[in-house]
Every structure is written in C-alpha cells, then in structure tokens.
Simulated assay, not measured.
Amino acid sequence: MDVKTAFFYLFSLVMLFAAFRVITARNPVHAVLFLMLTFSQAAGVWLLLKAEFLAIVLVLVYLGAVMVLFLFVVMMLDIHIDSLRQGFWRHFPLALGIGAVISLEMAVVLFGGFRAGEAPLIPETVTNAAGEVVQYSNTKVLGQLVYTEYLYPMEIAAVILLLAMVAAIALTLRQRKDYKRTDPAQQVRVHAWDRLEIIKMAPTQAPPPAAEPAAATAQELKQ
C-alpha cells in the first residue's frame, strides 16, 4: 500500500464516521461541526484525485460560508430538542424503509453502472492554440468546459438556484409582532392636528391652601 492509498482510506474512514455522527448527534451544533469535518475530508479526497479546484471551492464555499452560516443560525435559533424528538419511533419504520430503498438503488448504480478501470493519465504539458507548450492546468480546462460546452446548463442551474433563494425568502418572511413598525407614507401625510390635541379637563384636586405668615418672634414684638 502506497502513501496515496493510505491517505485515501484515512480520509474516507474519517468522512464516513463524521457523516454518521451528523445524523446521530443529539446536539445540533455538534451535528453541524461534524458536517464541516465531513466536507473537509471530502476536500482531501478531491485533492488526491487531482481536482484541486473542486477541493478549494468545497473548502471556501461550504466550510467558509455555508456551514459557518448554518452554525450561526443553529446557535441563534431557540431549538427545542425534546419537541423535535417527539414521534421519532412512530415514523421510524417509514424512514427505515425509505433508507433501505435508497441504499438498494445506490448499490445497483455503483456495482452495475460503474466499472473499475485505470485512472486517466494527466499530461504535465499541453499545446495551446498558438502552438506554445504550456503547463497543464486542471482549473483552466474545467473553466473552458464550463463556459463553452456546459454554458447553458450552468446558466439554467444559476437561475434555478436564484428562484430557490427567492422562494425560500418569500416563504420564511413573516411580519414580527414584537416590535413597533412605522409607515413612511403615513409619516409624510401627517398633519399637526393629527399629532397633538389639547383637551381642557377639570381639576381633580383642590388647590393647596395659601401659606400662613410665619409667627413673629419675641424680639420683633419688642421692637
């Protein structure tokens, strides 16, 4: 066993363990942390397959942005774990059946649709359109394929993701009732008599009696 194979098994075992802990961890924060570990190990597998661009994107996008956002959202939300666990065993047979069907389909695809073969050889240098010999770049080749042959699928996927983001915002947008909200249009149309009204009211208490003059001292009387 060479070093590359050893690293592949190491990354794969850690990734499988972390993925299993994602669905078995009771604390949602721990589940998010295990999911971040899963993505980091998947990035290591991509590096072993010489797909450096995909590994960097996986680390920057998922670990650096998406998973950190998930972590902050999970920590800020008031999630009641006990209420989430209610009805678990009642729906467990259905979940087990769906999981078995998915596992069977994946087994059929993996063992029947793919054949193990030799890995394609990646050249160290290639010849560009100008006839110059340049170093082979996996990222450059991927970019050329994405923006030439797969341009329309990429645009369609971008539009679908945009629609999904807008739909998620529209579905979760609710007006909060725990704070006061002002309407700028009403503030512009307001008048002075709408804001202040002077009302004459009868006094509710009698005025205090006038203060009596202080008694003169004996010295003042003698004078």
Results as ranks from 00 to 15, higher is better:
residue 132 E to C: 10
residue 114 F to Q: 01
residue 104 L to M: 12
residue 133 V to D: 01
residue 139 T to E: 15
residue 138 N to I: 00
residue 140 K to P: 09
residue 137 S to V: 01
residue 122 I to L: 11
residue 140 K to G: 02
residue 115 R to T: 09
residue 135 Q to Y: 00
residue 131 G to S: 15
residue 105 E to P: 00
residue 117 G to P: 02
residue 144 Q to F: 03
residue 125 T to L: 06
residue 111 F to S: 06
residue 114 F to W: 13
residue 118 E to C: 00
residue 123 P to F: 02
residue 130 A to D: 15
residue 124 E to G: 09
residue 129 A to F: 10
residue 121 L to K: 13
residue 123 P to K: 02
residue 105 E to G: 10
residue 109 V to D: 12
residue 144 Q to T: 05
residue 112 G to I: 04
residue 104 L to A: 15
residue 132 E to R: 04
residue 110 L to S: 13
residue 125 T to P: 05
residue 118 E to H: 06
residue 128 N to S: 11
residue 128 N to M: 07
residue 125 T to A: 03
residue 144 Q to I: 03
residue 105 E to W: 02
residue 114 F to D: 00
residue 124 E to Q: 13
residue 105 E to K: 06
residue 113 G to E: 08
residue 142 L to N: 03
residue 134 V to M: 03
residue 134 V to W: 06
residue 119 A to D: 13
residue 105 E to S: 14
residue 143 G to S: 06
residue 110 L to M: 07
residue 120 P to H: 08
residue 129 A to M: 06
residue 115 R to D: 08
residue 105 E to I: 09
residue 119 A to P: 14
residue 135 Q to R: 10
residue 120 P to E: 02
residue 112 G to N: 00
residue 141 V to G: 01
residue 109 V to N: 10
residue 143 G to N: 09
residue 133 V to R: 00
residue 141 V to C: 00
residue 106 M to H: 06
residue 111 F to C: 02
residue 142 L to Q: 09
